[in-house]
């Protein structure tokens, strides 16, 4: 089955990102195709590489980056939501005249059309949020 995933909450405060990660991993292991994982609302905060949790805790951001590398996952962060919350790739930082960028490896920034398109292309769109 072709599956799209929407993550609507940030890391740690909410379980949404953990659940989405476990779901995506399990779906891939079962042979399903993950078409895209789209991060919206505070979900964009899953994409900052400046995250540094205590050593004995999971690193939610790195976990997504690693999964993306392993399985060529398309991790997409909504640009409008990201701009509000200070998530930027190098290009966007330059365009906005910022002195830093923070987008983690494996993520890309794009528009909301990517979410709608996932809804059209996928057999299922699964939401993780509140």
């Amino acid at each position: 089955m072709k599956i799209g995933v929407l993550v609507s909450e940030g890391p740690y405060t909410h379980q949404a990102s953990d659940s989405a990660y476990n779901f995506v991993k399990a779906a891939i292991e079962k042979g399903h195709e993950i078409y895209r994982v789209f991060f919206y609302h505070d979900g964009v905060n899953n994409a900052t590489r400046l995250t540094e949790p205590p050593r004995d805790d999971r690193n939610i951001v790195n976990r997504w980056s690693e999964l993306s590398k392993q399985h060529n996952l398309d991790l997409v962060v909504c640009i409008a939501a990201a701009q509000r919350r200070g998530i930027m790739d190098a290009n966007e930082a330059k365009r906005q005249g910022k002195d830093a960028d923070n987008l983690a490896e494996g993520f890309r920034i794009s528009g909301l059309g990517q979410l709608v398109e996932a809804g059209i292309q996928c057999d299922r769109l699964v939401t993780f949020g509140d």
Partner: peptide, 19 residues
Amino acid sequence: FTSSENIDPDDEGGVIKKF
């Protein structure tokens, strides 16, 4: 609207879904 839409909405192969 954001300026970074890089998908062509007319290129969805005529699929119309109920959203």
